[in-house]
């Protein structure tokens, strides 16, 4: 995408953090209050023939403004965990808290991005982003301005009126990201958002997501199959075991806040962390 490079300065000046706490260079907040608290959660799916335990004994605290990535083998319940946080699914045991509220139904104070962009085909990029505002009945003028900011931040300028099928996969995912951020959610949940993109676009999106996260100060939980993506982006990487899914280890690579893509890849901490995660997942279960 040719115009990705130009908008980075614009974004920094426009975007302001929505959360009250300031983000330290490490990206981690000093405050003790957790943005998301997952407490001893289990999820069992009942079907006629058998019960399937998707998640068991999962506990995780995520600080406000933190970027957490979740990796694990396919079917380990990573996406289920995100749905729990969003309140799209209820836990069979334990509880999930968002801020200081217990999650007991679909949460409206989050942004959600799926692997497929899930855009409305009949709406232009801009109107897809504004769907968030329309449904929430947010003031129109403000929402348009906010959408404009996000469009600049994600490099979608000039594509506002394009229909989804006229956009590349990466661009569609940018639109989905803008839509998820329109209402300034304190928590952004991303379920393999770059899984369908080619390797090069994916790297580009990683760099952008990291920048956008730093600009917005949103708490991010990212589910991914890519170990390097997880380590590059996140403050902490939660490694999950196969079904029934549980947290096997939480890894903090200790990378600096400013992360140039190739420099970060070349750092010894990066190598140590990815190797450790690969060991945890077992050679067969997750190809990077």
């Amino acid at each position: 995408m040719p115009n990705d490079v130009t908008h980075s300065q614009a974004g920094t000046t426009l975007e302001k953090a929505d959360v009250t706490k300031s983000v330290t260079p490490g990206g981690r907040t000093e405050a003790a209050a957790a943005a998301v608290r997952i407490d001893d959660v289990a999820v069992r799916f009942r079907s006629k023939k058998r019960d399937v335990t998707a998640l068991t004994d999962v506990s995780l605290d995520i600080a406000s403004g933190e970027f957490v990535a979740i990796v694990g083998p396919s079917g380990c319940g990573k996406s289920t965990l995100l749905k729990l946080v969003a309140g799209l699914l209820g836990p069979s045991a334990g509880e999930v808290r968002l801020g200081d509220e217990r999650v007991s139904g679909p949460r409206h104070d989050i942004g959600y991005v799926f692997q497929r962009a899930a855009l409305l085909e009949w709406r232009s990029a801009l109107r897809n982003i504004l769907l968030q505002a329309e449904i929430r009945k947010l003031p129109a003028a403000e929402s348009r301005a906010r959408a404009g900011e996000l469009i600049r931040m994600t490099g979608l300028e000039g594509f506002e009126e394009a229909l989804p099928h006229e956009l590349s996969g990466g661009m569609q995912q940018r639109v989905a990201l803008c839509r998820a951020l329109l209402h300034r959610p304190p928590v952004l949940l991303m379920d393999e958002p770059f899984g369908a993109l080619d390797a090069l676009t994916r790297e580009q999106m990683n760099v952008e997501l990291r920048r956008i996260w730093q600009e917005t100060g949103t708490t991010v939980i990212l589910v991914t199959h890519s170990i390097s993506e997880a380590v590059y982006l996140a403050d902490r990487v939660v490694v999950m075991s196969a079904r029934p899914g549980t947290v096997s280890e939480i890894i903090d690579a200790g990378l600096p806040a400013e992360r140039g893509y190739s420099e970060t890849m070349a750092r010894p901490e990066f190598g140590t962390a990815t190797t450790r995660i690969r060991e945890l997942l077992g050679a067969a279960s997750a190809a990077d």
Binding site: K83, A86, G87, L88, P106, R107, H108, I110, G111, Y112, F114, R116, A118, L120, L131, Q132, I135, R136
Partner: peptide, 11 residues
């Protein structure tokens, strides 16, 4: 996923 999304929007 579109329906889940609209649920998170409070539609």
């Amino acid at each position: 996923e579109m329906l889940q999304l609209s649920a998170t929007m409070g539609a």
